[in-house]
Design a protein around this nucleic acid. Structure first.
Length: 483
RNA sequence: GGGGCUGUGGGGUAGUUUGGUAGCCUUUCAGGUUUGGGACCUGACGACCCCGGUUCAAAUCCGGGCAGUCCCA
């Protein structure tokens, strides 16, 4: 008896992902795309509340690993921006310049904040006792994207966190890169339910100004990969450019070793939506849903007051135990509320009406499996356990999906087929430094896919020869299409 | 970077071929009756993306711009 209405989704996720995505972000009231400036969007309360939850978990995780919060200006003087040559070269095409300020240098609207932060680091760091320095900020950054923009996925403004750390030794800096990968695992995978492949990028694909880059590749339902948090070993490139020095235990001056890490919250929201959503709408992990349980009172004129006050009691009790619950007491009919909250992805729904009061059993609807069950008031207080199970199911499903999409291959022909089937190929490859670039270009041109890199979290040893040139392989790489 | 498609009340659309009256569904708002999977009645608000051109007359034709969307590199 489901009446198709314009309020629901009119396409299936599997059949037309692009259209599904466009519809869901609008209909679940995540975004409003009517701002009419290319690459800039409005994020509505429901989207913003989810992002707040995500920010909160991320910042807590960073703080737990000894990072301190800061806020830096959004503008960067041109002369700062120019200090590190390869950074300048890499980012210049994407910078929005502010040039209307008379008698002053041109200002860059930050595309990322290395060149804003590191001049201050030069003031702050003097001694080995000042190290390590681990700092982050939550910020909006601006990049003049030339590629097609897509809401939350690629915009000219996006919302992220950037952590910028300094160490006395390269070893510590390299450890930090591993810690960042671990943070991505703890937060994006375990809390947001979004699995990823930590990819050490080939040399030709590293961050502008870095020694090397590790990007977290996440699978989209259309088979393409999207880069989520990346972490970079900056080495001493920036500390030399910005004169960030310290005196070591022996009184000798040295440049610091640096890393930076950038989880983009708005883009992660896109992955959360894409990974978990279904044909009925969003499915939000319990750990980040702004409303974890929505109470739907079912009343008529006679019992309205009684049902509402009973709902209120339950809400108070749940909120006291740390469960985020709300009551939808609007005048809409229950059915309409069901559709609406399912579209918005709330994990649990509690129905409470005359029937429930009489039976002393409440009705709990579980969003991902779309099943109703009876639950006692007492059991309801264990909702956090239900929530953990809920998230486990989401993670398991997402893990399964990415796992079965990675296929080993030995020949160009196999590679082509894997890519055409919208999967990810794992193959032997000659080299991920400059020597391998010709083979990578071949893959881009002939196979229409990218060499994403090698595993950064474990060593995979190649057995055999490069899938393209046939020379002895030094690496095992992952190849896929990407956003 | 290249190309295609699209732009009509808040949302979805008809009308564009053949220039002349902006129609429908939905949302929103007000009131009333309702309330266990997208209720109903009555009434109201609300639109031709922008700039220029052709014409007596442009949503419609032409040019440019902006925006959205898809495909390819």
């Amino acid at each position: 008896m489901i009446k198709k209405s314009q309020e629901g989704l009119t396409v299936k996720k599997d059949e037309d992902f692009s259209e599904w995505y466009s519809q869901i972000i609008e209909k679940a009231k995540i975004t409003d795309l009517r701002y009419n400036v290319k690459g800039f969007i409005v994020i509505r309360p429901w989207g913003a509340r989810i992002m707040e939850e995500m920010y909160d978990l991320y910042e807590k995780a960073l703080q737990k690993k000894d990072h301190q919060p800061t806020f830096f200006p959004a503008v960067i003087p041109e002369k700062n921006f120019k200090k590190e040559a390869s950074h300048l070269k890499g980012f210049t095409p994407e910078v929005f310049w502010l040039s209307k300020i008379k008698g002053e240098d041109r200002l860059a609207l930050r595309p990322t904040s290395e060149t804003a932060m590191y001049q201050m680091y030069a003031f702050w760091i003097r001694s080995h006792r000042d190290l390590p320095l681990k700092i982050y900020q939550r910020a909006q950054v601006f990049r003049y994207e030339t590629k097609a923009t897509r809401p939350l996925i690629r915009g000219r403004e996006f919302y992220w966190i950037e952590a910028h750390d300094c160490f006395a030794t390269k070893e510590e800096a390299e450890q930090q890169v591993q810690e960042d990968i671990q943070t991505t695992e703890e937060v994006m995978h375990q809390k947001f339910g979004v699995p990823f492949l930590p990819m050490k990028r080939p040399q030709w694909d590293k961050f502008a100004g870095a020694e090397y880059t590790v990007g977290s590749d996440v699978l989209m339902p259309d088979g393409k990969l999207i880069q989520q948090p990346s972490t970079h070993l900056l080495g001493q490139n920036f500390s030399k450019a910005f004169d960030v020095k310290f005196k070591d235990e022996n009184g000798k001056e040295q440049f610091v070793w640096q890393t930076c890490y950038g989880p983009a919250i708005s883009r992660m929201l896109a992955s959360v939506i894409s990974t978990h959503g279904d044909d009925y709408g969003l499915i939000l992990p319990f750990s980040i849903s702004p409303v974890q349980l929505i109470i739907i009172p079912i009343f008529n004129k006679e019992n309205k007051e009684k049902i509402l006050s009973e709902s209120e009691k339950i809400k108070e009790r749940l909120n006291f135990t740390g469960i985020k619950s709300e009551i939808d007491a609007s005048e809409k009919r229950p059915g309409e509320k069901y559709y609406e909250w399912e579209l918005k992805g709330v994990p649990f729904r509690l129905e409470i009406g005359e029937k429930e009061l009489n039976e002393k059993q409440l009705t709990l609807f579980i969003r991902d499996i779309r099943k109703k069950q009876k639950i006692s008031l007492k059991a309801l207080e264990n909702l956090k356990e239900y929530g953990r199970d809920f998230d486990k199911r989401l993670i398991k499903k997402a893990d399964q999906l990415i796992k079965e999409r990675i296929i080993d291959c030995k020949t160009k022909k196999e590679l082509k087929k894997i890519i055409d089937d919208k999967k990810i190929a794992r193959a032997n490859f000659c080299s991920v430094d400059e020597k391998g670039e010709i083979c990578a270009e071949y893959i881009e041109k002939e196979i229409n896919a990218e060499v994403r890199g090698t595993r950064a979290d474990k060593k995979e040893r190649p057995k055999g020869n490069c899938i393209i040139c046939g020379k002895s392989a030094k690496e095992v790489v992952y190849i896929g299409k990407s956003y």
